[in-house]
Design a protein around this nucleic acid. Structure first.
Lengths: 219, 219
DNA sequence: CGAACCGTTGATGGCTGTCAATTTTGGTGG
DNA sequence: CCACCAAAATTGACAGCCATCAACGGTTCG
């Protein structure tokens, strides 16, 4: 199901890449040269069990963080888009997989974590924790329609509150994020369209017509 | 459903309490006097929206961290037992509720978070993040039986891998943790008992008879 | 002894997963 | 520009798991 693409090879120093891509503000000041690496769709950024030795920041594109069960069931615990930092792990080891959803550029910070760095990234880690726990409420206690509504609103918010959103991820990704099947996700999309809550200008291009209607579903 | 008990009043300085309770190692060296506070069952430790100004460590007892939907649906994102630290929040504000499950003693650290503290608690926060994301896989992608099995194994591990576990929490709590109803939780317990995986010496006293059988369900 | 709470068990229905077929989309090459 | 193709998405039929509603047993406490 998941393409196991080889690691991407293209590499630029930050100085070069920074001049060309919409620059996201670095989370902490680099003390050594760091890189911006490009990944094509479905390329693995790191894998479960790998030694964790860096932090990652999305320059452009999108990333999924996920975990697998032995039989292939997958749970995506987070999506990350431009500007967001990911890759902190306990035990110096990655407990999850990270893959590029589409063509993406990732800035990689390889510093060891000293006290100053810790102070800078702690808030980011805590935000991720809050997000994960909030997502738990969605997945654990909300209906399929409520989950999709919450997802759409989250996407709207992340893309600057503009009502026209362009989803980087497939229905499969959305399902694995929300704990649903693709069919259920698709059916909810259709139902929302039917009710006039959204418009689909393409499979992954969604216009939010009635934000309030969606918002009222999430309580 | 949830008793809104008033804040507990009994307060001791750490020096006194530390001599009497099974001392959990402090996570970081206190620079000011800190307290151990006692809470009775269902007492609120902090509430959603409150200003966050401390970290908490369980001396004894157990704590649930949860969030509510408007209609009362509840998702418990974590349980905490002796030794564990909780209460870190983003934005200087609590996004969740914390309540004592049973009579509990909580050590409260009120230091501001400077760089050294951040370095000390970052690993703890990261561990919490990993836990939350792993729990997401359980809730999002596993069946009722698999969820309960995962829960029981987690409890076994936390109580030192002894096969006789004493659950602090009710079936309602377990259900709200696993994203299930109490009836389903109860039915799974019965099924496990029937199959000889567990023995129930009391409603909340569980002997794990076949760890491997449970473990094999969680993949 | 009665009340309240917790946990268990049973009957039933609905939501969502599964399986399958079809349509749409997006990309490629003629 | 259009035809063609593979992948993605949609839609339908059906089944199964789990939620809901309900009744009952056990325990604790006043």
């Amino acid at each position: 199901m998941l393409a196991q693409a080889p690691r991407n090879a293209m590499t630029f120093t930050a100085g070069h890449a920074g001049a060309r891509v919409p620059a996201a503000a670095p989370v902490f000041a680099p003390t050594q040269p760091h890189q911006v690496q490009f990944y094509h769709a479905n390329a693995e950024i790191y894998g479960q069990g790998e030694k964790a030795r860096a932090l990652y920041q999305v320059e452009f594109g999108a990333v999924r963080i996920y975990r697998l069960l032995a039989d292939g069931r997958r749970q995506i615990s987070a999506f990350h888009v431009a500007g967001e930092v990911f890759g902190f792990e306990a035990d110096g080891q990655h407990h999850f997989f990270a893959e590029a959803i589409c063509s993406s550029a990732i800035r990689i910070y390889r510093q060891p974590i000293d006290a100053d760095i810790a102070r800078e990234i702690l808030p980011v880690a805590l935000k991720a924790l809050v997000r994960a726990q909030e997502h738990l409420l969605v997945v654990g206690r909300q209906s399929a329609a409520e989950r999709v509504a919450a997802f759409l609103l989250d996407m709207v918010e992340r893309q600057g509150d503009l009502p026209n959103i362009e989803l980087a991820m497939s229905r499969t990704d959305i399902g694995d994020y929300l704990g649903l099947t693709i069919e259920t996700v698709s059916r909810v999309f259709s139902k929302f369209k039917e009710k006039g809550y959204i418009r689909l200008t393409g499979a992954r291009a969604v216009d939010i017509v009635k934000v309030e209607a969606l918002a009222s579903m999430c309580s």
